[in-house]
Amino acid sequence: MTDLEFAVDVRGLTRVFDHFVAVDHIDLRVRRGLVFGFLGPNGAGKSTTIRMLCGILRPTAGSGTVGGFDLWRESEALKSRLGYMSQKFSLYEDLTVEENLQFFAGVYNVHGSQRRRRIAWALEMAGLVGREHVLTRDLAAGWRQRLALGCAVLHEPPLLFLDEPTSGVDPLSRRRFWEMIAELSDRGVTVFVTTHYMDEAEHCDELALIYAGKVVACGSPAQLKSEHVPHALLELTPSPLMPAYAALKEAPGVLGVAIFGDRLHVTVADADQAKQDLPLFLGQRGIVVSKVDRIEPSLEDAFVAIIEQSGVQER
């Protein structure tokens, strides 16, 4: 795999469940050595894609290679070269930390001194030293996820698939987990990670956005923001929120409005002009605006813009 340019290179990947197209002819190219983020809301088809790439689920259509191995013919050979962490925790909860590590080392053909070294390393990395004999079901979510990652990389795979590895984990553990991803990436591992957290997506070298089974955009976080949010962005804190949202959609000079918690992100053609006009516009309708700022577009803004531009229907 060392002379491979793309760790994942698939075209037209499709999966149909009964008559429901969960993943719809997607093309993916993941450059070797990168942290590749696969971003999309729940139900977009992230897990289905990752499961096809790992050889767990048979694609309905598509072709290409994963880790240099043919998607259809060489999925068995691929298995010793990839690590996978499923979205649902899938280690044995009635085994201890150490027993899980021993078991997965065994089925991954890691033996002898190499096994001792790798298990010690995994315990160290996951911060589980001293907890070797704790039953896995008694671990907190953050520890479990780190143990799952440890088990997935015992055989030092050059390619790692992580499916929402930080869902349901506290913010501190999430940060710690991303440090582990960075460390693996530094060692040359290609990491393919799905998430629906936008802040996590910022850590990725490259991103693909998937929406309703289709890949709607690809590129680095900076590229996505600059290419898809060409206009200026204002952040308003109006009260009440929903009437302001409705009113702004009709306001002159406004290109788009999106709700972010108790605030609105408004895409405008001319930032300075709008900064003056909009509070007045809303004031005339009895809406108080406590704060207006020009902001840098976030990935979420980019994502909203991309979906609007793509014309893909929600399902």
């Binding site: 767990i56 010793s80 690590g83 996978y84 499923s86 991954y108």
Partner: peptide
């Protein structure tokens, strides 16, 4: 049922 089979399938076993 517990989903552990997913982790097994991706190993060389």
């Amino acid at each position: 049922e517990r989903g552990t089979i997913e982790q097994i399938i991706v190993t060389p076993i």
